[in-house]
Amino acid sequence: MANKSKSAFYQKALFVLILMLLWETVARMKFFNPSVFPSVTSIIIAFLKGVSSGLLVEKTVYSLYLILKGLILSFLAAFLLSSLAMVFRIVENILDILNSILHPLPGIALLPVAILWFGIGEGSIIFIIIHSVLWPMVVNFMTGFKTIPRIHLDVGENIGLKGFHLLWGVMLPASLPYLLSGIKIAWARAWRAVIAAEMVFGAASGSAGGLGWHIYMTRYMFDMAGTFAALLAIIIVGILVEELLFKNIEKFTVIKWGMTI
């Protein structure tokens, strides 16, 4: 087990290193104008400058705050709606048609609507995040609930579990792989939504803005190294969340229970 994860790490690290070297080579060959294709070294310098001045950290935290707010609200809504849909047929039908109508719409396309309803502050950004994230979550939750093997529910009912206890004790753990997959997709979608929305709404409400705004600003100021440094920040946060959060949740639940390998 230990050997497998060690060689996996080395393979991934080697691949990334070779990619970086390729990038640096292309940058140094000046095949593209250096102002629009910065070298790896200039990107790293810009990144370190942003971290040490606190600017990148501040922006990342703000974007994360918006994402978390949107994710938590969406999770609760998705869980509630999916649970109700399992109990009441009519809720399931309504949810289905809502999903067909709204899921294909990209969050950013609803921007003008968001401005009209929620104004130009945080509310609009949260609205776009929730819209981008709710439907994939609902789809995954519903699939998770529906694919619970009948036998699990029977055993639960046999030992006297009913209603909420059945939900907590059997349905939730049984559908956990799908729930987790839904959350992972939602996390990636939330990033896309927040960066795109921030680029449009910018630093409304007088706050410093998030990473999307930072990307917009560095682009305006013709600071491509800064733009890539912001992308690097997003990548690092993504890797950290994946390795430290998701992998560990999986390790202590679905992997431990033998539901996935």
């Binding site: 080579t25 140094r28 060959m29």
Partner: peptide, 17 residues
């Protein structure tokens, strides 16, 4: 080899075609 390649190729480059 990759590292050497970076430095060698990096030196010869078209100047912004």
């Amino acid at each position: 080899i990759a590292l050497l390649g970076t430095f060698v190729l990096g030196g010869c480059g078209a100047n912004n075609p």
